[in-house]
Structure formats: structure tokens, C-alpha cells
Computed example of a mutant assay.
Amino acid sequence: METESADHLIRFRDGGFLDQPVETVPTDEITIGYTPRSDGEDTEYTKLLAEAADELPPILVHRPTMHVIDGAHRLRAAALRGDTHIPVRFFDGDRAEARLLAVAANVTHGRPLSTADRTTAAGRVFASHPHWSDRAVAAVTGLSARRVSQLRKHTPAARTGHRVGRDGRTRPVDPARGRALAGELLRTNPGASLRSIAAEAGVSPATVADVRDRLRRGEDPVPSRRPEPTAAPEPTAAPEPTAAPAAPADTRPPISLESRRRPARTPEPPPGPAQLLRIFDSLRRDPSLRLSESGRNVLRMLGACTLVVQDREKITATLPTHCKEQMAQLAHGYAGLWSLLADELACAATAEAS
């Protein structure tokens, strides 16, 4: 799993698990093994779940070990209520993937992981996947990429020459170093394939091809990044001042002092993709939605919209041509309904707050 991307775990967490069938499993067959929480079970949260009138949402279990990946508090709540069975969705990956998924799932909903637990989880990722990029580790652990970069400096993972991004692509940490290494490899083994040199230097085959062409022209493998100095423009004489034309008489009514002090209101821009995902994550963590059937229906609906936020360009590129016109009509129609719903929700929130 070292060279795989983190994106498949994120996609599974953000809705891919819904493709797994729900099975009813005896509670005594499931165990709480690895947990990313250092402080253990929150008994008050377990009691809150146990007192919920609705059926508990399915938990996520690692099938090979029958260990809970996500839902330890729900499993405890089921036992507290005396339930002998619990709904389960299974994950069939290996143990290392299950542990990473446990972290990724618990940073976004339910009772989120503490900052200390996320920091500890980042250290485990550095040990098992040292080549994962800062953004990939951040996506799994819920830390910022800047914080992940700071933590990496104190681990052996900081010495890796290339990183694997969320998309699975390998990129050099220092592009100049990768180009220089590719140049050395080409000089010592000019008959080697572009792919073999790219894999050894940690750069793309296209970069190796560019390095090869530069060597053939007698140029350095690493292009200079400093722009050529340009001559300063010749100073021009300042134009002679000319008398300003007389301003036409202002026939507009005088503006009051009060209106001058009040700045014009500008409409707030709609939230961008990143903000939409943050809002969805916040709603997904709300127990009042997760623990009711109507709330779970809303979250499932919003989860589908999240896929549009993440894969809009891919949907446009891969949708069959004969379906695109009908899809466009549906999208326009649904957009109008969403706008109507947004107005109704805003009015209702204002009325209830007053």
C-alpha cells in the first residue's frame, strides 16, 4: 500500500462505504481493537446514543479481524441498551488500511478526534507511508498541510526524495534535484528507458525526456529560474501641465451626511467548494441529524451533492454524449429547487431567531 494514494480512503469515507451492503451481526462477534482515541470511551456520549429512540446507524467493521473501524460508541450503546445485534457495513482492506480509515472516519463526524490524537495519527502515517505528501497525510488525519509539514521535519519521512500525492502521482520534493539525478543517470546509461530513469529519479517520464533533450543541446538539466535582467526604461519627460477644463454644473440633489456615512451593501459571494465541504462536515458531525431517520436522509442527499463538488469536471468529461443534454436540464431544474429551498430555510431561520 506504500505507493497507493490516500484518495481511495477519503472517497470510501466520504460516501464510498454506502455502496457496501448493511448486514445484521451479533454484537458479541465484534471487538473494539485499535482506536485512534487516547482518552478511550466517552461514557456520556455513549449514554446519549443509547437513549436515542431511532435505530443506530450502521457501524463500519474490518471484516478480516472483526474490529470496529468507526462506531465504537454505537457498539457500546447497543450493548448498553441490551441489543444482541447491530447493523454493520464491512471494509475488506488490510490491517494498515483499516487503521488509517479509522483515523480518517473519526476526524469528520461523531465525536471528532482531539488535536493530540490527530498528531499521533500523523506520526503513524509517517512511519507506515513516509512518501505520502503533506496534503495526503492532512486529508487522512484532519490536520492542516502546514502542520503536517512541521511534524514531518522531526521524522525519517523528511528525508524522502519524492512524495505521493492524493491522486497517486509521484512528485519530487526538490524538482531541481530530481532533474540533476535524471541527468546523471542518462549520462551513465543513455540506453535506459525514460520510465526506468523516471522511477529511479522520482520524476515524471516527461521530465526525463526534457532533461535528455537539454543534454543533447549541451544545456544544463536544470533550467535557470532567474529571469534575464531587463534594461530599465528610458525616463520620459513629464508632460507640461495644462489647465483643467471647467467642471460642469452639478444638477444632482445634495447627498445627506447620513447617506455618506453608510457604505453600500454588497451581496455576499456564494461559498466555494472548500467551504461547502467544511459546512457538510460540520452537519455530518451533528448528532441531531445522525440519530434521526429524517436527518440521515438529509445527510445522504448532501453526500451526493458533495460528490458533485469533488467530481464535477470528471462527470462532465465521462458522461455519455447522448445523456448530457438531459443531465443539463435536470441540473438546471434542481438548481432552481435548491435556490427555492435556500430561500425558505433562510426565512425560517430568521423567523425562529426573532
Rank of each mutant, 00 (worst) to 15 (best):
A145K: 13
A145I: 07
R146P: 10
R146D: 13
R147V: 06
R147Y: 00
V148P: 01
V148K: 12
S149I: 04
Q150Y: 12
L151Q: 08
K153S: 04
H154D: 13
P156Q: 07
P156R: 07
P156T: 04
P156K: 12
A157R: 04
A157K: 01
A158D: 01
T160K: 02
T160C: 03
G161R: 15
G161N: 15
R163C: 02
R163S: 06
V164D: 02
V164R: 05
G165S: 06
G165Y: 04
D167G: 01
G168V: 00
R171S: 06
R171D: 02
P172R: 08
V173S: 00
D174H: 12
D174R: 15
D174K: 11
D174T: 14
D174Q: 09
D174F: 15
P175G: 07
A176L: 05
A176G: 03
R177N: 13
R177G: 09
A180E: 00
L181W: 02
L181C: 11
A182P: 09
G183C: 03
E184S: 01
E184N: 00
E184A: 08
L185Q: 07
L185F: 12
L186E: 02
R187E: 00
R187I: 04
P190G: 14
P190E: 10
P190F: 15
P190A: 14
P190T: 13
G191I: 09
A192L: 11
A192Q: 09
S193D: 09
L194T: 06
L194K: 12
R195E: 03
A198E: 01
A199Q: 07
V203M: 00
V203D: 03
V203K: 03
P205L: 13
A206Q: 15
A206T: 15
T207S: 05
V208F: 09
V208Y: 07
A209Q: 13
D210Y: 15
V211I: 10
R212T: 02
R212V: 05
R212F: 02
R212G: 05
R214H: 08
L215F: 06
R216T: 02
R217L: 15
R217C: 10
R217H: 15
G218Q: 06
G218R: 06
G218H: 09
G218M: 00
E219C: 09
D220H: 07
D220P: 03
P221S: 04
V222C: 02
V222Q: 01
V222I: 11
P223V: 01
S224L: 03
S224A: 12
S224I: 02
R226N: 14
P227F: 07
P227Q: 13
E228A: 13
T230S: 08
T230R: 07
A231P: 00
A231N: 00
A232S: 07
A232Y: 09
P233A: 11
E234M: 03
E234R: 03
P235L: 14
T236S: 14
T236M: 11
A238V: 02
E240L: 14
E240G: 03
E240M: 15
E240P: 02
P241H: 08
P241C: 01
P241I: 09
T242H: 10
A243M: 13
A246F: 10
A246H: 15
A247C: 01
P248Q: 14
A249L: 15
A249E: 12
A249F: 12
D250Y: 13
T251R: 13
R252L: 14
R252H: 12
P254F: 12
I255P: 08
L257P: 11
E258Y: 12
E258F: 11
R260N: 12
R261C: 06
R261W: 10
P263S: 08
